[in-house]
Write a protein that binds this DNA or RNA. Structure first.
Lengths: 170, 170
DNA sequence: GTGGTTACGTCAGCCATGTTGACATATTCC
DNA sequence: GGAATATGTCAACATGGCTGACGTAACCAC
């Protein structure tokens, strides 16, 4: 990375700004997953396990098919990590009440603990970034990120009533 | 994803907001790489090739070691994708002038064309997101993303003089 | 000019995580 | 009772990380 903006050419600036945006995504995502990946490796787990644990923790009692459509991977891919998490006691399953074909998933205490540790790291990183950027910036971040993701994924997030209001006063 | 914020508990809101941030990163990154991944697959290439092409296009004449420290992967991992790109004529190398041990990398016309197509997609996605979020939001996005990434990566981006000024008036 | 360091390359093998395709079982619904 | 659904499993393959070992050419310092 080097030799950047010098002259004031709107088209160039536009391209440069967009390229920076591309790199923001790449570099930020990399940093975001770095520490959890390390912690996971110590437990013989990988990033895929983190995702599964995360979303089960996020929505206890989630069905396998809901988890699949959240993750957008094949059931065979999920099976590999999920069955390991079940074997090693991070996750439990119980049959659905209404529909007994379902296996509803939830974290065991061990799973909750691991999820907490992993996510704690990302929460701290985000909290620091939010704090240093300020409440107004966080609102902008939210807006842009929501617009980047697919419409289906965006629908997971209920539109916020009043904009920030949410306690990010630095 | 469901059953979210109902009562006004600051701690809960904080946790919910941070969890949403975590998911923003995951869902946005997924969408961001989706289309390019499809296009790459048609050429028998993968995401790793995209990164290499991208950063060579970003900084023509970059050395292998600079590329390695940008990507933070091992030379063996880079070698696999880079030598394929060389074989298939997307990338060229020439010896360094000052230091003839170096292999300076640049895109061929074919590589430039592929880079353009791939990045065009991401630029369009970002441009749309920026447009819909508005200039102020973009500035917030930038601030938060810069704070998420590592200090070293952040240093790749020269601090902007005046905040936006950059032509994102929707 | 010799010897150590650096820049780059390559072979071999391992692991994680995605994919496709095929098939099995239990349950639900019409 | 039969089709559709929810889940699981086996097998094989591709991608893209990793480590370890080794090789060559160029540079640099004494």
């Amino acid at each position: 990375m080097a030799d950047v903006t010098t002259r004031i050419n709107p088209l160039f600036l536009r391209d440069e700004e967009l390229r920076q945006g591309i790199e923001f995504l790449y570099f930020a995502y990399r940093e975001f997953t770095k520490e959890p990946d390390t912690m996971l490796a110590e437990q013989g787990l990988g990033r895929a396990h983190h995702r599964v644990i995360y979303f089960i923790g996020r929505q206890p009692g989630i069905s396998v098919s809901d988890l699949l459509s959240t993750l957008r991977i094949t059931k065979q891919s999920l099976s590999r990590v999920l069955s390991q998490l079940l074997r090693e006691g991070y996750v439990r399953q119980r049959p659905g009440l209404r529909d007994r074909r379902q296996r509803l998933l939830e974290l065991s205490p061990k799973g909750i603990e691991l999820e907490r540790k992993l996510t704690e790291n990302q929460r701290k990183l985000l909290a620091r970034a939010y704090r240093e950027a300020g409440a107004e910036a966080v609102e902008g971040f939210r807006k842009v990120m929501l617009n980047i993701m697919s419409e289906e994924d965006r629908a997971r997030f209920p539109a916020q009533a009043t904009p920030p209001l949410s306690g990010w006063r630095a």
